[in-house]
Amino acid sequence: MSGARIPWLYAFVLGYLIFLYAPIVLLPLFAFNNSTTIAFPLQGFTFRWFTELTRVPALHEAVKNSLFVAVVTAISATILGICAARASTRYRFPVQGGIMGLIMLPLVLPEIIVAMSLLVVLLRLGINLGLWTVILGHVLICTPFCVAILSSAFRNLDRSLEEAAFDLGESRWSTFRLITLPLVLPGVISSLLISFTISLDEFIIAFFLSGAETTLPVYIFSQFRFPARLPVVMALGTILLVLSLLLLSVAEYFRRRGLRQTGAGDSGGFL
């Protein structure tokens, strides 16, 4: 049903979208602004903040670290997500609700609680902080997102296709590999991209658990203290914005293709 338009509702939604996009629109504005202070009026166009980005070794190190963490996190969280999503959609087993609840818990737990509790245990065990400890935390918070995405992919799967392959003599593993996996592949790709993006952007856990090695958000946070560095941070932010828009568009494309393949309706959104 598409009822008659209510003008005030439309105006409200437009205003809300402006509120949502206000900070993001400013990012490219100040990235290309030829002034060391982040304030209006704009002072003219420049590329110099972008060229300056290429001359900061600490930043390059942070980018490399973040990419490493995000790639390992995305793969691990997606594998764990496949197990949990497949188990919960295909099988019935005792205390299923409790088990899935525990796996999904980080979704509603404040990140500082996750970060702090991991820090306490890692320090007690005498484990040195570094990129691997950040990965441990990131896999924990990314897995619920992967489970959510992959559950809908597995749920939309027509079970009779698997049964047919099984009846035709394929083993359970080869059925999974030849039938199930290709059909949920779009969900898997979307899960990889989403967890990659979350990990790349995560700050609190990285701040607590990275020790001497910095990830990109930890680097950005440290730059906020130096006003002169801010235009460079804006340029960096603009690049990140463009990259995450690209990644998300690709994720959305695969998610929709997956829905088309399994013939399900589009319920919209990642979450």
Binding site: L20, Y21, P23, T197, D201, P217, I220, F221, S244, L248
Partner: peptide, 11 residues
């Protein structure tokens, strides 16, 4: 609606 959420939280 979700795009702004996927850009750096810190920024």
């Amino acid at each position: 609606i979700t795009i702004p959420f996927w850009t750096s939280y810190l920024l």
